Amino acid sequence: MAPTGETDLAKILKTLRPLLNNGEFVFCVVNNFAALKPEDIIMSFREEEGNTIIRKKKLADRLHLPYSFVASWITLSVHSSLVAVGLTAAFSNALAEKGISCNVVAAFYHDHIFVDKKDTDKAMAALAGFSE
């Protein structure tokens, strides 16, 4: 089966097109999904210690879900392949050079980066630098 999406790193980096999603986002650990609407969950991942979800901060606050990190969500609009080599290293190094921590979720079509809310503008500028 041929890969879906772009695999050439140079092309991917030139066409990243970072998009800032509206809102504040948090990572929470939940044991019971009963009180959660699936459409309100951005991402979920089952780990041995518990179920991690990402959702809008205001929805987590409404359910009194604890969190320790308030993030901005940046989507890399380029359709990169899941087998593309070097993309995560390239953008995480660029962000690290600016002192920005990033948490990455790779989905089928796009990569999604969660950065500390205070670093949003610096992160967007660093990512935009790839296409210049």
Rank of each mutant, 00 (worst) to 15 (best):
M1V: 03
T7S: 03
D8Q: 11
L9D: 08
A10M: 10
T15I: 02
T15Y: 13
T15M: 14
L16M: 06
P18K: 05
G23F: 04
E24H: 12
F25H: 05
F27L: 01
F27I: 04
F27K: 00
C28Y: 12
V29Y: 02
V29D: 07
V29E: 02
V29H: 03
N31S: 08
A34D: 05
A34E: 12
A34W: 11
A34T: 05
A35I: 15
L36K: 01
D40F: 02
I41W: 06
I41G: 04
I42P: 05
I42Q: 12
I42H: 07
M43F: 11
M43R: 05
M43K: 00
S44R: 13
S44V: 10
E47Q: 08
E48L: 15
E48W: 04
G50Y: 03
T52D: 03
T52A: 03
I53E: 00
I54E: 01
I54L: 08
R55H: 09
R55E: 08
R55S: 11
K56Y: 07
K57M: 13
L59E: 13
A60M: 00
D61G: 05
D61M: 02
L63N: 11
H64N: 11
H64I: 08
L65D: 03
P66Q: 14
P66D: 15
Y67L: 00
Y67T: 00
S68F: 09
V70P: 13
V70G: 10
S72R: 14
I74A: 05
I74S: 01
I74W: 02
T75P: 03
T75F: 06
T75H: 07
H79V: 13
S80V: 04
L82P: 15
A84E: 01
G86I: 01
T88V: 11
T88R: 04
A89I: 07
A89Q: 08
A90L: 05
F91H: 02
A94N: 03
A94P: 12
A96L: 05
A96N: 11
A96D: 08
K98F: 00
K98I: 07
G99Y: 04
S101L: 07
C102G: 09
N103G: 01
V104R: 14
V104A: 15
V104T: 14
V105E: 02
A106E: 09
F108A: 05
F108S: 03
H112R: 06
I113Y: 14
F114Q: 11
F114A: 14
V115K: 02
D116K: 04
K118V: 13
K118H: 12
D119S: 06
D119E: 08
T120Y: 12
D121G: 10
K122T: 10
M124W: 01
A125L: 12
A125R: 13
A125W: 07
A126D: 03
L127F: 06
F130P: 15
S131H: 01
S131Y: 06
E132G: 07
E132M: 06
E132S: 14
E132C: 09
E132Q: 14
